[in-house]
């Protein structure tokens, strides 16, 4: 009983941590792409919003 509960808790914790890590990585990737990536196309597309959100630009 205890063992089952422990296993369940571990599994829940693991899926929880996995989901948190996925959300965190997606968030960082989005902010990086929109705000920091040095590609000329992305820079042009996001130019005004980079300035407006006060990311370093140019």
């Amino acid at each position: 009983m205890n063992a089952t509960n422990t296993t369940k808790t571990i599994i829940r914790a693991e899926t929880g941590l996995g989901a948190i890590a996925v959300a965190l990585l997606m968030g960082v990737a989005l902010v990086y792409t929109a705000g920091f990536a040095n590609s000329a196309v992305l820079h042009s597309a996001a130019h005004d919003s980079r300035h407006a959100i006060s990311f370093p630009c140019h």
């Binding site: 965190l24 968030g27 902010v31």
Partner: peptide, 23 residues
């Protein structure tokens, strides 16, 4: 493009924030 990239940026901020909520 400004609207799209601003929404993308704030969605990124939101994902990081809710990950913090969960933690």
């Amino acid at each position: 493009l400004t609207i799209l990239s601003t929404v993308a940026t704030y969605t990124g901020f939101a994902l990081i924030m809710v990950a913090g909520f969960a933690v």
